[in-house]
Design a protein around this nucleic acid. Structure first.
Lengths: 112, 112
DNA sequence: TGCTTATATAATAAATTGCTTATATACGTT
DNA sequence: AACGTATATAAGCAATTTATTATATAAGCA
């Protein structure tokens, strides 16, 4: 298996070592999401969400793509440390439920 | 596979998201180590090392065992999140080299 | 064009982290 | 008992982190 340096691994883990960002990654491995969905799911202010996404983006773990009014985030599956990310996500509960709840509240479609 | 809660996983990752602690875990998966060995390997002060070990111990990731004058640390392989720890460590370079260097310097035996 | 919505960024404040130095504790040896 | 070595703990401090509020930017629509 490809090994990453100690330092880069520690940096990835530091990013994932936050409940919100870890859940974001768990969501993104199943669905692309836009900022307003994260705001709704995590009940956090929009700037707080944007700043977490910024950190993930700066590390190259996520990509952004504008779709009209919205900016959708997705996992960068080409990242050197993506296998590590995948392994980590396997250890957390499935996050898709949060998306389903959002859909049931009719809040998913606000971004489609 | 057993899944840990999002929160407990994030807490583990936060601990591993530090270069020194991550390397410590990488070392401990191969050998028990005492504090003075870590001090030598990481070129850090003894209190700094002790504080990192304290965090790992508080989380239950490592155990300590006194052997005469020395206190040896070892991984707690019974920890609920040990499989996660193992998976993470698989992604970093082998740390045993550091122990070998220590032995070559004759510094390993100071703790035997 | 002007308004609304979605998002980013900047400034700031509070909490946390990781080190340092100083000191305490525990064991082994003389 | 006194001393030296190994380790832990406490206090203090600088750097980092994470949130908040305020503001800027960009797209869609009346």
């Amino acid at each position: 298996m490809e090994k990453d340096s100690l330092e880069s691994t520690a940096n990835i883990l530091k990013l994932l070592g936050d409940k919100t960002r870890l859940a974001m990654m768990g969501l993104l491995i199943k669905n692309d999401c836009c900022v307003c969905e994260f705001v709704e799911i995590f009940k956090m202010t929009q700037p707080a969400i944007s700043q977490h996404l910024r950190k993930l983006k700066d590390a190259g773990l996520v990509k952004e793509q504008r779709r009209g009014q919205w900016i959708f985030y997705s996992l960068n599956r080409d990242h050197r440390s993506f296998p590590l990310v995948q392994d980590v996500i396997r250890h957390i509960p499935d996050q898709e439920e949060k998306i389903i709840q959002l859909e049931q509240q009719g809040l998913r479609i606000t971004c489609n």
